[in-house]
Simulated scan of single mutants.
Amino acid sequence: MKKIFAKIAYDGSAFSGFARQRQKDIMSVTERIEIALRSMGINDEIISAGRTDKGVHATGQIISFCVDEKIQISKIKSLLNYKLYPYIFVKNIYETDMSFQPRFDARYRGYRYIFCDNFSNPFISKYVSVEKYGSKELIQEALNLFVGKHCFSYFKKQGSDTKTDIREIYKATIYQHKIFSKNCNIIYLQANGFLRSQVRLMIGAALAYSRGEITLEEILLQLDCKKHSYSKPVSANGLYLVRVIY
């Protein structure tokens, strides 16, 4: 056997999330990839760098799986992309060490959240969130509070199968970028890991502060696990897993 490392992108709007779900009405990203692999004679289960929620996209998700020694790696990428079209795309694929583990070997993960203040293009509505917000300076002021090592027990949804809720945020910044001639805001967050819906709750709190709905002190109280001041995650459609660093 040999282990395969693959970097993939996917349209999260077409799936129930990355991980297998109990409800079978909508397929998960994992199930779709494994069906394609089985049709190629590859029966291993895939392992990922992280799970994304329903509606969340990825441009830099990392997965691994094992294949028989006889299978030519050069043919896997093109055949997989043919079978996974149009919602999943394999960007890179190569052989890696058998000890490689995408989730536990990852040092950092990066997410981007793309949003604007009004709906004007139906062709990007699945990929850009519409949010109400104040000045970008106020958003950045709130984002700065998250940088560093904190316990994020009050910034997660139930279901995070982790031993600890402590995470370290290395970068939290907002900038603008034009998408299809529309000025959009992008928040980039990089950390050693994230809990379930943590990114969406953090961004939601930052936007709420920019709208004058909560204070910086209330965000800090939530970071200190003393008071739930904000509990509504922003929409999933603007969120992307963009980078996993090893």
Rank of each mutant, 00 (worst) to 15 (best):
Y10T: 06
Y10Q: 13
S13I: 12
A14R: 11
A14T: 08
S16H: 08
F18E: 03
F18S: 05
F18N: 00
Q21N: 09
Q23M: 12
D25T: 15
I26T: 13
M27G: 10
M27Y: 09
T30P: 01
E31V: 12
I35M: 15
A36V: 03
R38W: 14
G41A: 02
E45G: 03
I46V: 12
I46T: 02
I46F: 01
S48F: 08
V56K: 02
H57F: 07
H57E: 04
T59C: 09
T59F: 08
I62R: 07
F65C: 10
E69W: 00
K70F: 13
K70H: 07
L79C: 07
N81R: 02
Y82I: 06
Y87A: 02
I88Y: 05
F89T: 14
V90C: 02
K91E: 15
K91C: 14
N92F: 14
Y94R: 15
T96M: 06
T96S: 02
D97Q: 11
S99H: 12
S99W: 04
Q101E: 15
F104L: 12
F104Q: 12
F104N: 12
D105H: 13
R107Q: 07
R107P: 02
Y108K: 12
G110K: 03
R112I: 05
I114E: 02
F115E: 01
D117R: 03
F119A: 13
N121W: 11
P122L: 05
F123Q: 00
F123P: 02
S125G: 05
S125C: 15
K126V: 13
V128T: 06
V128K: 01
V128R: 01
S129L: 08
Y133E: 01
G134C: 04
G134Q: 02
L138M: 03
L138S: 01
A142Y: 00
L143A: 06
L143Y: 08
L143R: 04
N144V: 00
L145T: 03
L145M: 01
L145A: 00
F146T: 06
K149M: 11
K149Q: 09
G159R: 03
S160M: 03
T164Y: 08
T164H: 09
T164N: 12
D165N: 15
E168T: 13
K171F: 11
A172F: 01
S181Q: 12
K182G: 10
N183Q: 12
N185F: 14
I186D: 00
Y188S: 08
Y188V: 13
L189P: 03
N192M: 00
N192L: 01
G193F: 09
F194K: 01
R196T: 09
S197C: 13
S197G: 11
S197D: 13
Q198A: 14
M202R: 04
G204M: 04
A206R: 06
Y209W: 05
R211P: 06
T215G: 06
L216N: 00
L220P: 00
Q222W: 04
D224N: 11
K226C: 10
K226P: 04
K227I: 11
K232Q: 07
V234N: 05
L239K: 10
L239R: 07
L239C: 13
Y240Q: 09
R243V: 04
V244Y: 08
I245F: 08
Y246F: 04
